[in-house]
Design a protein around this nucleic acid. Structure first.
Lengths: 194, 194
DNA sequence: CCACTTGATGTCAGTGACTGGCACTACTTA
DNA sequence: TAAGTAGTGCCAGTCACTGACATCAAGTGG
């Protein structure tokens, strides 16, 4: 009956999101998701490799957006400035999709198994960002460190934005990077002479 | 036959580590682990909540060590200095246990399911570190950000140390925090007037 | 209009992680 | 010695996930 496959895929995502909200992730079976989506359980696993992945679909888009923004950032910016630039741009996607992503994030937040997957995705994106920095000519060591601390700052800002959406993600981002700046500048260099 | 339970637990950990190395995590069944340890499969799940957790046991110790070092760091240090202090101390545990933790880390590195769990543990420890900073009087917002960026820096340094153990973890740590300092100081504050 | 191919699905059998329940045994304590 | 407790073995069952094979709709070329 379904011709394109993409329809079934969307129905599965929708059904999974609903059921995870209604009964919780652990008390939802893949058979139930498939039934609500009107397909066979086997079909579920043809579209998603496992029960968690059905909630993580936009990753490829976000990754592409991030890498593009890092690549296209103005010349002359320092690594963390490049990242702030990219996060501001990519953050708009997040903000526009908030109605979609809010229930999703709520479920992830209360489900350890989903938090684990979320962390894995974040780690993968961090690695992608580091690679994008390297392609910009940032030295290997700095690219890795900048990507990790930059992502941590972004993650921190996103968390603050979830708790307090009034100010907008961008304001939280700017404040987080300012805070990072303050944290580091106020730190005496290493414990050794330089 | 076993009297203390702790023995069975250690045998299970040992058997799991061996089997994961020999055949890989995915091609090892919990029944095989139990058999090599000389116990029933059910006993495996009495000691460990799942097949991954058997490799993550020292977490409580590391957490305690970290929180203690953060709490006992000298007064007057800025948040990131406190963390550098704590990581240097806690890092010694890592260095002393390298013979133990090296095969373990190698398995984790090549097994996505175990990497996920590892990331979850790191996130949990980061949260603990943030809490320890708060108890030191660091403001909520800064504690969270400092913990995340500090952990990212620590993680980065640990990775560099794994690749190049010659210099010792401490040297890598100092360099990573210096790099972080450089990254941030060279960054113009935000994109807005202050 | 008839093969023929192709992509998505349904069906079925099977493996393995994990759980609840119950009985047994060794060690501890009154 | 009796009662308790902790650690274990055993058994049945659920559920995530996989491989193999059949089916079915749609498009394609003759």
């Amino acid at each position: 009956m379904p011709r394109s496959g993409a329809e079934a895929r969307r129905r599965l995502q929708q059904a999974a999101l609903e059921l995870y909200r209604e009964r919780g992730f652990d008390r939802t079976t893949t058979a139930e998701i498939a039934a609500r989506a009107g397909v066979n359980e086997r079909t579920f696993f043809r579209h998603f490799p496992d029960k968690r992945e059905v909630l993580f679909d936009g990753e490829a888009d976000l990754r592409a957006a991030l890498m593009r923004e890092v690549a296209e950032a103005p010349d002359g910016l320092r690594p963390l400035e490049v990242l702030l630039h990219a996060f501001r741009k990519a953050g708009r996607i997040l903000e526009e999709n908030r109605p979609f992503s809010e229930p999703r994030l709520a479920i992830i937040a209360v489900t350890p198994a989903l938090r684990e997957r979320d962390l894995a995705k974040a780690a993968s994106l961090t690695e992608a960002v580091a690679e994008a920095l390297r392609q910009r000519g940032v030295a290997d060591r700095l690219a890795d460190l900048a990507a990790q601390t930059g992502w941590a700052t972004f993650h921190h800002a996103a968390g603050a934005w979830i708790d307090d959406p009034e100010q907008g993600l961008e304001a939280h981002l700017l404040r987080a990077f300012d805070d990072l700046h303050d944290l580091s500048t106020a730190m005496t260099p290493g414990g050794r002479g330089r």
